[in-house]
């Protein structure tokens, strides 16, 4: 490991009582202050953050693939430029997040290694293929739309570097969702075939978005049975007590459905859930609860695409090895200063 950097290295335990440190940590979180890299933090907090930030970073870069596959087949130069910018942003989101994860004392090369070896995972959302051009619109409108709802509260998450990374991410996500909606609108205003293609893409991407982007059910109201709700709620409660999460998965899921239904209506598209209807009493749209069976169905039985995503990622990494080697050789020759030896 290249000299643990003093900016980010966790402090070695000072000769202070652990109870005092924990009390100080809890007080900071309770006051809505951020925890910064060199602050003392409970091991569980650090582990939960590394796990969540790494999974999030992996999802950003794996999520480039379904849309990236359409870059050479975009229907116009304008749409192609927009899609390149969008996919490039997703690479950037991954890098912001790997940078944040490194402040917790992990090495990004090790995280990528864990992804490549299947020890850490990306969101299963992107284990679905983008079959038509309309999928690029549906992905951006629905899954990036879900990401915005998920991620907006993370801009205030308790760990400083994560919150700052998420603020950069969120600023860029608004563009992603709007360009996706614009793409869908263009198809919906086009020929009947184009509109049918848009509807077909929505039929395929609705479930991955509403189920997988928010995680499994963590309340009984959301569709979990009592036992899994208790488990899910325990994890969510822990994350909320530490200020990492701000809402339950099911709360955010409801928020997503509430925002999507009117948007779909404006497009003239039907969300593929016959249970969707306005509930005056609750002030929310009802929808088919995402119970564990539905969640598993969204995961998909076929792991072909899951393997494909990782294989593609590994190949890109291995194909790029010569670039990293050349850069290292150049840096060695110039003594890392950028100036050529005289």
């Amino acid at each position: 490991m290249p000299g643990r950097c003093p900016v980010t290295a966790p402090t070695t335990a000072p000769a202070v009582d652990e109870g005092d440190l924990l009390a100080h940590f809890d007080a900071l979180v309770a006051a809505g202050e951020t925890i910064e890299p060199r602050d003392w933090m409970p091991d569980g907090y650090r582990r939960m953050l590394v796990r969540q930030i790494a999974q999030h970073a992996h999802s950003e870069i794996i999520g480039m693939q379904p849309e990236g596959a359409w870059l050479t087949r975009a229907p116009s130069l304008h749409r192609k430029s927009v899609l390149i910018a969008k996919v490039q942003d997703e690479a950037g989101h991954g890098l912001y997040l790997y940078s944040a994860a490194e402040t917790l004392g992990v090495d990004r090369a090790a995280l990528l290694d864990a992804l490549h070896r299947g020890q850490q995972r990306a969101s299963a959302t992107f284990n679905h293929p983008a079959l038509t051009w309309a999928d690029t619109g549906a992905i951006a409108w629905l899954t990036d739309g879900a990401a915005v709802i998920n991620q907006a509260p993370l801009c205030r998450t308790s760990y400083g570097p994560y919150a700052r990374a998420m603020r950069r991410v969120c600023q860029e996500e608004a563009f992603h969702v709007r360009q996706g909606y614009d793409l869908m609108r263009a198809l919906c205003e086009g020929t009947p075939e184009q509109k049918a293609m848009a509807q077909d893409a929505v039929n395929r991407w609705w479930l991955p978005a509403v189920a997988l982007m928010f995680g499994p059910p963590d309340t009984e109201a959301g569709g979990a049975d009592a036992r899994t709700a208790a488990l899910g709620a325990a994890v969510s409660r822990r994350a909320m007590a530490w200020g990492i999460k701000r809402h339950t998965n099911d709360e955010l899921r409801q928020r997503f459905v509430d925002s999507c239904v009117p948007q779909a209506e404006r497009l003239g598209l039907t969300l593929p859930d016959p249970a969707i209807r306005w509930n005056e009493e609750r002030g929310h749209y009802d929808f088919t609860p995402i119970d564990w069976d539905t969640y598993r169905e969204a995961l998909g039985d076929d792991t072909h695409w899951a393997r494909q995503r990782i294989a593609h990622r590994r190949a890109a990494h291995e194909d790029g090895a010569w670039v990293r080697e050349a850069a290292a050789a150049y840096a060695a020759r110039t003594d890392g200063t950028g100036g050529e030896d005289e």
């Binding site: 950069r168 890392g336 200063t337």
Partner: peptide, 12 residues
């Protein structure tokens, strides 16, 4: 300060 990158040398 906005974050960090990994690179072999200053140009990169």
């Amino acid at each position: 300060h906005v974050g960090s990158v990994r690179a072999a040398g200053p140009d990169a």
